[in-house]
Design a protein around this nucleic acid. Sequence first.
DNA 1: TCATTGACCGTAAAACGTTTATGGTCACTA
DNA 2: TAGTGACCATAAACGTTTTACGGTCAATGA
Lengths: 189, 189
Amino acid sequence: MDRRQEILLAAEKSFSLFGYKATTMDQVAKIANVGKGTIYTFFSNKEELFQAIVRQMVEEMRRVSEESTIAGASFEVNAHARLMQLLKFRETHQLYVKLIEEEKELRTPMVSEVLASIEEEIIEFVRQKIERGISKGELKPCNSELVAYLLFKSYLALVVDWSKTHDRQLSEEEIAQLLSDTIFSSLLV
Amino acid sequence: MDRRQEILLAAEKSFSLFGYKATTMDQVAKIANVGKGTIYTFFSNKEELFQAIVRQMVEEMRRVSEESTIAGASFEVNAHARLMQLLKFRETHQLYVKLIEEEKELRTPMVSEVLASIEEEIIEFVRQKIERGISKGELKPCNSELVAYLLFKSYLALVVDWSKTHDRQLSEEEIAQLLSDTIFSSLLV
DNA sequence: TCATTGACCGTAAAACGTTTATGGTCACTA
DNA sequence: TAGTGACCATAAACGTTTTACGGTCAATGA
């Protein structure tokens, strides 16, 4: 068995179960069946190990998001599908859920940092899709950075924030309809 | 001098300067030049006193927002002016700034509650403006609750959140342009 | 008579000293 | 020489004491 891989598996399990702060290097070493020192031959500290795990997750998110793409469908349909998929991942994936909880409850700085960087990556991802839409002639030229930001924040607000102040959750149809009428319609050529 | 008024002035000063948690009833009594017991003849507890002060502030916000309205201007121009005014107030008014800081640093539950209710009021205010725009035939019929929510959250994201992850702040023109192209354009008849 | 007061009360939070746990190292080992 | 776990310094958790606070109410005096 690959020691590095064992460590990554153990770390993923522990971070997912206990979060960043409550995960100890002794814990990870025990789960991975290695001495604590061994971890430090692969990762220079806890922070780096954590970031390696998060990078894995971000890759998985990217994969899942791309998989939800429907070949031949419009920009709007695919952007909607991908963003909803990402937000579903956010509320479903054990590690992501745990990190959001930790950010809210403990305010662990490392966790805040990592969550912010994930958001940035998603927005950059959306931006690239918009640029692609423009260069394919499907979308009007626009400030893709701003539009990507607005689009992502809108989804976040409607999917995540809305249910915090209203008891019912918005249905996917309502969200799709609202954004189709407003932001999306203005992007199309 | 009106004792009730003295107390309100003292409370406003103290809450603005120190926030909710760090304001003590002894403090307020001293500033107001009244015995502590006197406060309790007008307000049944600290929470009620605080809410009275916040209600004052919300009224001031409403006034300031209405004042920024340009008679005869379009829905878009006025909605933009009012929302920018409200967000400026949010970042300028001593008490509001202090409460946002306290919510972030201390997470005082009462403060979170009050800030949430202010947001709700603003959104309801926007909703009414939208409904009015519809009944005047200036706007297409739409789900005003959802649109108001989206609009407010968009402004919040562009004005407040953007500068947290990007070093430069968005100019008012950029914001006006972006939202004019996207959300506003879709609302007009 | 009754509005006003501040000493007083119970409680919750701050302060503090002590103990425990944790990230990281490195001499030792197999 | 890759791998280990006892070890170290430090920081976080814990338990206890002290302080501070919101709220009350008997006393006061206008």
